[in-house]
């Protein structure tokens, strides 16, 4: 009996080595995969910087699009993107936060609420090109906005709306119940409690989520193509009903030309786009870290 036991435990001990080796190999593989993923990002950024950096100049930011690469710039695209975001930010923020407040604070736990909630999560999964089709049909044609800043801005607002709603809902849900109780206990009405206690507390979370959503809107191309935003624009818009072009449209235009010079311009445009996005993301991360401890 004792012998058998000893042999059995010896076998187990002998097997430990091979099991540990296997563990090490797998760990190595997984680590390589992780490293590889990081390298992809580094290569991507490196390639774009090397290709585009020489084309970055004051002139590049100051010039309109041109058939001659050396004279081409992104002025119209940058200004157009700013105009579009001037429509997207208030529209999406107001409707997004409003929807979130309704769903978290006012809506009953009933079938209608669940249905709205399901709608929102499904909308988040609809491809952006389909939002483009919606914008083309409703805003461009039905409402007659044409390929204007307003049409593109509304389309983008609808695209990012689900993201903002979900982020705001989470932020509102994270408001401690004790604070709401304190407010109600002093005789505050529901809206007073929401506007003076809940929203101020949820603002950092709402801001973080919204900034990330807006940075998505800045980089989206497909819906702009579908609503018919032109790429070659040599003037600046003066109102929301004007036609315009946007940064990703300009990059797309240059990328789809065969000449190498235009590709370099596209890379330079991408650098500008990425700098803007990284700045926005840093602000979002800063807000998140600053208020996380609370």
């Amino acid at each position: 009996m004792e012998n058998v036991e000893r042999i059995k435990s010896e076998e187990m001990i002998n097997r430990i080595d091979s099991r540990l080796t296997k563990n090490k190999v797998v760990k190595g593989l997984f680590f390589t995969a992780t490293l590889f993923t990081s390298i992809i990002l580094i290569v991507l950024l490196y390639r774009i910087i090397v290709q585009g950096a020489p084309y970055l100049s004051w002139d590049f930011l100051q010039n309109f699009a041109s058939r001659r690469p050396e004279q081409a710039g992104i002025k119209a695209a940058v200004v157009g993107t700013i105009w579009m975001m001037a429509v997207v930010v208030p529209t999406a923020a107001i409707f997004g936060v409003g929807s979130a407040i309704y769903l978290e604070e006012y809506a009953g736990k009933n079938a209608l609420t669940r249905w709205i909630q399901m709608n929102i999560s499904n909308l988040a999964g609809v491809p952006s090109v389909v939002f483009g089709l919606l914008g083309l049909t409703i805003f461009v044609r039905l409402f007659g906005f044409g390929n204007s800043i307003l049409a593109a801005g509304f389309t983008m607002s609808l695209l990012v709306l689900p993201v903002i709603i979900v982020a705001s809902q989470e932020a509102i849900r994270a408001v401690p119940n004790e604070l709401k109780e304190a407010s109600y206990g002093l005789g505050a009405t529901k809206w007073q409690t929401i506007s003076r206690v809940v929203i101020p507390y949820a603002v950092p979370g709402i801001a973080t989520g919204s900034i990330l959503a807006f940075s998505r809107a800045i980089g989206e191309t497909a819906p702009l193509i579908v609503v018919g935003i032109p790429t070659f624009v040599a003037f600046l818009p003066s109102g929301v009903f004007d036609s315009f072009t946007a940064l990703p449209m300009q990059i797309y235009n240059w990328t789809s030309r065969p000449q190498e010079e235009f590709h370099n311009l596209a890379a330079a445009g991408i650098i500008v786009l990425l700098v803007v996005l990284i700045m926005m993301n840093s602000v979002a991360v800063w807000i998140r870290n600053r208020y996380q401890s609370r």
């Binding site: 004790e178 002093l186 005789g187 101020p200």
Partner: peptide, 27 residues
């Protein structure tokens, strides 16, 4: 408003001491 309440866990608002007390008046 006529009947005040103090809760199990202290639950001041994330505001200043002054604003905590002024809250009820302001609303």
């Amino acid at each position: 408003t006529r009947v005040g309440m103090v809760f199990q866990k202290p639950n001041p608002f994330p505001k200043s001491i002054y604003e905590n007390i002024a809250f009820g008046l302001k609303i």
